[in-house]
Simulated scan of single mutants.
Amino acid sequence: MSGLRKLLPSANALLVFEAAARLHSFKGAAEELNVTQPSVSHTIKSIEARLGTQLFERGNRGVRLTRAGSELMADLSPALRQIESRLRAIADREGHTITVAASTSASAQWLLPTTAQFQRAHPGVSVRILTTDRNVEPGDGVDLTIRRGPADWDRANCWRISEEILYTICSASYLEKSGPVRGLEDLMNHSIIHNAEPYRNRMQWKEWLSLQGHNLTLPETLTLNDYQLVIQACIAGEGIALGWSFTTQRLVDQGILLKPLDNEVVTDHAFYVLGPKYAELSRNKMRYINWISNHAA
């Protein structure tokens, strides 16, 4: 590797080149790296002088890579990502922070209490929970995600934590004022809460009823775009909703919510915890994954 000293003014020059190439801007690279634009320009010129070739074409609207610059970027970018992944794994080996992303309802009703138990058992590990209204892949600041996927999902770094089971939920106060639900057809006579999340495909009332041989169109008494709001509306006694066991079973066990009907649907999907594909996960991340997997029931 001693030859690199002759080809590069410094190891940091590679980071400067990568930022400028990725952003197509010396100014943008300077802002990202917290240095001055002349410093970036000087570093690039130094690399070009060492290599004896131009890496960027300069223009009034920014810069763009030459053929030589494109060739260097093609090799450098994946190499830096691999180095970053390895450094993160080493840094996380004995502690630091695990960042996990999940929906608001999964975070509030299941992940938060499960994580609190984990942290009491492993005080040296810190966990950050990020709520998101859409499915995200691990990476770019997110170590793990809680996702719904097919029941036979074949994916690297994927651990199944729960079946997808749906049933009806409401509060005792709602049944006291509206009366019992005497069957699926009787849902037509009740206040029905609908879930209309914009970015996640979730089973709706019509499909749930169809799987049980009923072709009913229930009244849209209340429609909400976040499932945590649906749960809160049920707790407040506003009506009946579909309940996912993954996020509502704890509330049912505590008596906060009730199942007005015995009907359940087990779908061909499940819930998983995902890590970055093919990445080697640190010891503490595996401890956390095993903990939440074992406590999902």
Score class of each variant (00 low, 15 high):
His214Glu: 10
Ser105Tyr: 11
Gly213Ala: 01
Leu261Ala: 13
Arg81His: 15
Glu207Phe: 02
Thr36Glu: 02
Glu71Phe: 06
Leu87Pro: 13
Glu207Ser: 06
Leu112Trp: 11
Glu176Met: 01
Phe246Ala: 00
Leu87Asn: 07
Ala151Arg: 12
Ala11Thr: 06
Leu274Trp: 04
Glu220Ser: 13
Leu175Asn: 12
Ile193His: 13
Ile289Tyr: 01
Lys259Ala: 10
Lys45Asp: 12
Ile256Ala: 05
Ile169Ala: 04
Asn225Glu: 11
Val181Ser: 06
Glu185Trp: 07
Thr114Val: 15
Asp140Glu: 12
His42Glu: 14
Leu258Pro: 15
Pro198Val: 00
Arg283Ile: 11
Glu48Val: 07
Glu18Pro: 12
Asn34Glu: 13
Gly149Asp: 06
Arg22Cys: 14
Asn34Ile: 01
Ala106Ile: 08
Glu84Asn: 03
Arg50Val: 06
Leu72Val: 10
Ile146Ala: 06
Ser25Trp: 03
Val127Gly: 13
Glu238Trp: 08
Ile165Glu: 11
Thr132Cys: 10
Ile240Leu: 04
Gln82Thr: 07
Arg202Trp: 10
Glu32Met: 12
Tyr278Glu: 09
Val273Ile: 08
Asp152Trp: 11
Phe17Ala: 03
Ser70Val: 09
Ala30Asn: 15
Gly183His: 01
Pro150Ser: 06
Thr36Trp: 00
Gly239Pro: 13
Ile231Cys: 05
Ser25Gln: 12
Val230Phe: 00
Leu187Thr: 13
Leu166Asp: 12
Tyr278His: 15
Arg67Thr: 12
Asp92His: 10
Gln254Ala: 15
Thr97Trp: 02
Thr223Leu: 02
Gly239Lys: 02
Glu32Ile: 09
Leu187Phe: 10
Ala89Gly: 05
Thr168Gln: 03
Ala156Arg: 09
Pro260Lys: 04
Ser173Cys: 10
Leu258Trp: 11
Pro219Arg: 07
Leu8Cys: 02
Asn215Leu: 13
Lys27Val: 05
Ala279Met: 07
Asp226Glu: 06
Ile192Asn: 11
Asp262Phe: 03
Ala121Cys: 09
Asn135Trp: 02
Glu238Ala: 15
Gly62Ala: 12
Thr145Lys: 01
Gln228Glu: 07
Asp186Gly: 10
Arg287Ile: 00
Pro150Ala: 01
Leu175Ser: 11
Gly237Asp: 02
Asn290Asp: 07
Leu281Phe: 00
Ile193Asn: 10
Glu31Tyr: 04
Gln119Ala: 02
Trp205Gln: 02
Leu55Asp: 01
Ser107Val: 08
Phe118Gly: 01
Asp143Leu: 05
Pro38Ile: 00
Trp153Pro: 15
Gln117Arg: 09
Ile292Thr: 05
Arg5Ser: 07
